[in-house]
Simulated assay, not measured.
Amino acid sequence: MTQAPTTPLNPSDALRDGAAGSSGRKLDGFDSGSRKAIDALVDDVESAREHVGPAIHEVAAKVETMAKSGAHEVSARASGFRDECAAYIRERPLQSMGMAAATGAALILLSSLAGRSGSR
């Protein structure tokens, strides 16, 4: 016993059933469109990742080179300053000792003042 397809009894039921079928097809189209957009976005992200990786390594290498260059420059300046100080001390030993004593006294005074203010 087969059952014959049923048809809606009134026009509003037919309109509702037609709208439901049409909206279902539109949602299927929306789903495939959104899937395509997401797939394109994923492809763009992967492509960007492939291009950014080498660029980051290149920038890191340049920064490392600059840091080494800066370290060498600071070392050279410090060496020059050390040599100038040694020459000054050889040329003016008494004046150098006086400056060292004054600097030591100032540091002791500052540390004692800092100790007093910290204990309050």
Rank of each mutant, 00 (worst) to 15 (best):
L109M: 07
L27P: 00
D13T: 05
H51Y: 03
G18L: 07
H51F: 02
S34D: 10
C85H: 06
Y88W: 07
S112T: 10
S112F: 04
S22L: 08
A71R: 10
H51Q: 14
N10D: 14
L41D: 05
R49Y: 01
R120D: 03
T2Y: 01
R49F: 03
S96W: 08
M97D: 05
L9C: 02
G21M: 05
H57N: 10
S34C: 04
A4G: 02
E84K: 03
S96K: 06
A20C: 02
G53Y: 04
G104T: 13
E64H: 13
A4Q: 10
A19M: 08
G21R: 12
G98V: 05
M97E: 11
A48I: 14
Y88L: 12
R92I: 00
G70N: 14
P93I: 01
P8A: 08
S69N: 09
D83F: 01
C85K: 05
P8S: 07
V42F: 04
G80P: 00
A106P: 01
V52C: 02
M99P: 00
A40G: 11
M1Y: 03
E58Q: 13
V74P: 00
V74R: 13
A71I: 07
A67I: 04
K68H: 13
G70H: 06
V45A: 09
A37R: 14
P8Y: 12
G18R: 11
E91P: 00
D44W: 01
E58P: 00
A14Y: 12
H57T: 08
A106V: 04
Q95H: 11
A76T: 08
G29H: 12
A105E: 15
L15A: 15
T6L: 14
L9H: 04
G53T: 14
L110N: 09
A4V: 09
D44S: 15
A14C: 09
H57R: 14
R49Q: 12
K36M: 06
A102I: 05
G118K: 04
G104C: 06
A76I: 03
V42N: 09
D39L: 12
T7A: 10
G104W: 01
S117D: 08
G18T: 12
L15D: 13
S69C: 02
R90A: 12
E64K: 15
A86S: 07
E84D: 11
G104Q: 06
A71T: 10
A86C: 04
R82W: 01
E84H: 02
R16W: 04
I38N: 02
S117C: 04
D83L: 02
M97C: 03
R49E: 13
E73N: 09
A19K: 05
M66T: 13
S117W: 06
A19I: 12
G115V: 05
K62L: 13
S79K: 15
S112A: 13
A60D: 15
M99V: 02
R16D: 08
R49K: 14
A87K: 07
R82S: 07
A101C: 04
G53Q: 14
A101N: 07
A102H: 12
S69Y: 06
M1E: 03
L94K: 06
A20N: 11
D31E: 10
D39E: 15
L41T: 06
K68A: 09
R116Q: 07
T65A: 15
A102R: 11
A105Y: 03
G18H: 09
G53L: 11
A40F: 06
V63D: 06
S79T: 08
L41G: 03
R35T: 06
